[in-house]
Simulated assay, not measured.
Amino acid sequence: MTENRIVKTAPLADGEYWALCRERNVISAAVNGHSLVYPKARMTVKDGWAFFHRDGIEIWSCNASYAAAQFDVHQA
């Protein structure tokens, strides 16, 4: 019997972070939908949402739990 497990990641607290892609190259990042963030981007978390930006321009956004699960996140 195969056991299905759901892994939940706690959402990030509101604040400023650096998000680093776990993918090793831009092609892998593109396959996973993270090419705009590759290799890293500044990330602001507010009210459960993560907003990625470069040079003051928002480039992408997602749920903060998804960001915590998919990127290496470090306090800015």
Rank of each mutant, 00 (worst) to 15 (best):
M1S: 13
T2W: 04
E3P: 03
E3Q: 13
R5D: 04
V7D: 08
K8Y: 11
K8P: 00
T9C: 09
A10L: 12
A10E: 11
P11F: 02
L12N: 05
L12M: 05
A13D: 11
A13Y: 05
E16G: 08
Y17N: 04
Y17C: 04
Y17L: 01
Y17M: 03
W18E: 10
L20H: 15
C21R: 08
R22V: 03
E23A: 12
R24V: 07
R24K: 14
R24C: 05
N25I: 03
V26P: 13
I27A: 14
S28F: 09
S28N: 14
A29S: 07
A30N: 12
G33F: 02
G33S: 06
H34Y: 11
S35C: 07
V37F: 04
Y38G: 07
P39S: 10
P39N: 09
K40D: 04
K40E: 09
K40H: 13
K40M: 12
K40P: 00
K40F: 13
A41C: 05
A41T: 03
R42A: 13
R42F: 09
V45Y: 01
D47L: 02
D47R: 11
W49D: 06
F51T: 13
F51I: 09
F52Q: 01
H53F: 05
G56V: 01
I57V: 14
I57A: 11
E58H: 07
I59T: 10
I59Y: 07
I59W: 07
I59C: 09
W60F: 14
S61L: 06
S61I: 01
C62R: 07
N63L: 01
Y66S: 08
Y66E: 08
A67C: 09
A67P: 06
A67W: 05
A68H: 13
A68Y: 04
A69T: 02
Q70R: 14
Q70A: 13
F71D: 00
V73T: 06
V73W: 05
A76R: 15
